[in-house]
Computed example of a mutant assay.
Amino acid sequence: MRTEVHRLFDPPGPRAIRRNRVITVAVAVALPALALLVISRFAAAGQLEPGKWSIFGQWPVVRYLLDGIGKTLLATAAATALTVPTGLLIALARLARNPITRLLAAAYVELFRAVPVLLLLFACMIVLPRFGMRMPIFWQLVVPITLSHVAVIAEIFRAGITALPRGQAEASYAIGMTYWQSMRLVLIPQAVRRLRPALVTQLVRLLKESTLGFVVSYMELLYAGKVLGEYTHALIQTYLVIAAIYIAINSLLSWLAGTLERRSV
């Protein structure tokens, strides 16, 4: 018996598949060529000499970068722990039967999707202290990121719940469940299982937003790299190492999202 699979988005058609293949081939050819050009320019400028890279084999430097990675992951984990449940609550508020609740939730989503995270950072760092509300540096970074991404997560949850077949809710009502019982026991568990890849992908954005820690002097990985590069006079090498670390972490998260997506189909 064939099992019907419900998707949030339609699969690409023949033209889109051909276009994606052409773009993939073009990028696969252009990226190595660009990489070879950059490496040759670096070599000509003497930036690939072993002496300029030897500092990254020293334990104090490695420990310093590991500390930056740890603080980056800590900020990302804290923002995720606050964002996901709050985003689910806002999504449920947008789907509530009370029009005032829906209006307030929609206003929150539209407002914080429009306001840049950097502006929220400045508000937490400059505006709130004038009203006697001072937060530690860690929360000056985490709270603005959370406020912004809650709106995005809420829309992801709302899309996932509304994409479920209407028969799921109707069947739960038929056996005597209330609206919120249906949401809690039937719809939300199914939506969460299907949205796991999108939620993991959102972690990549949260991780990249943590680079705004330099604004509040939070010693996350990028800011730690800036300090290290200025101290060792190896700014280019340090930023390349930092970029490689970010690529490795984001690639791991992307692989996890792809794995979850294959398992959810």
Rank of each mutant, 00 (worst) to 15 (best):
R7Y: 13
F9V: 14
P12G: 07
P12I: 12
P14C: 00
R15Y: 14
R15Q: 12
A16P: 08
A16E: 15
I17G: 02
R21P: 00
R21C: 06
I23A: 15
T24C: 13
V25P: 08
V25Y: 15
A26H: 06
V27N: 12
V27F: 12
A28H: 04
P32Y: 02
A33Q: 04
A33I: 14
L34H: 11
V38L: 15
F42K: 01
F42R: 07
A44G: 05
L48R: 04
L48K: 02
E49A: 14
G51A: 10
W53F: 11
W53K: 04
F56E: 13
G57P: 12
Q58C: 02
W59I: 10
W59L: 15
L65F: 02
G68C: 11
I69R: 01
L73G: 02
L74Q: 13
A75T: 05
T86E: 00
L88F: 03
I90M: 01
I90V: 15
I90P: 05
L92S: 10
R94D: 02
L95E: 03
P99M: 04
P99C: 10
P99F: 00
I100A: 15
I100P: 01
T101K: 03
R102C: 10
L103P: 04
A105S: 12
A105D: 01
A106Y: 08
A114K: 07
A114I: 00
V115D: 05
P116K: 10
L118A: 15
L119P: 05
L121K: 12
L121W: 02
C124I: 01
C124V: 08
M125N: 09
M125H: 09
V127D: 04
P129S: 02
F131H: 11
Q140L: 11
Q140D: 04
I145Y: 00
V150R: 05
F157Y: 15
R158T: 07
A159N: 13
A159I: 01
R166N: 14
E170T: 03
S172Y: 08
A174D: 08
M177D: 09
M183I: 05
M183C: 04
L185Q: 12
V186N: 13
P189C: 05
R193S: 09
R196F: 07
L206Y: 00
K208P: 06
T211R: 09
G213H: 06
G213W: 08
V215D: 01
S217Y: 08
M219C: 00
M219P: 00
L221A: 01
E230K: 09
Y231N: 03
T232S: 15
L235I: 15
L235F: 13
Q237L: 08
T238W: 06
Y239N: 10
L252H: 03
L252R: 03
L253E: 06
W255R: 15
G258L: 11
L260T: 04
R263S: 15
S264N: 11
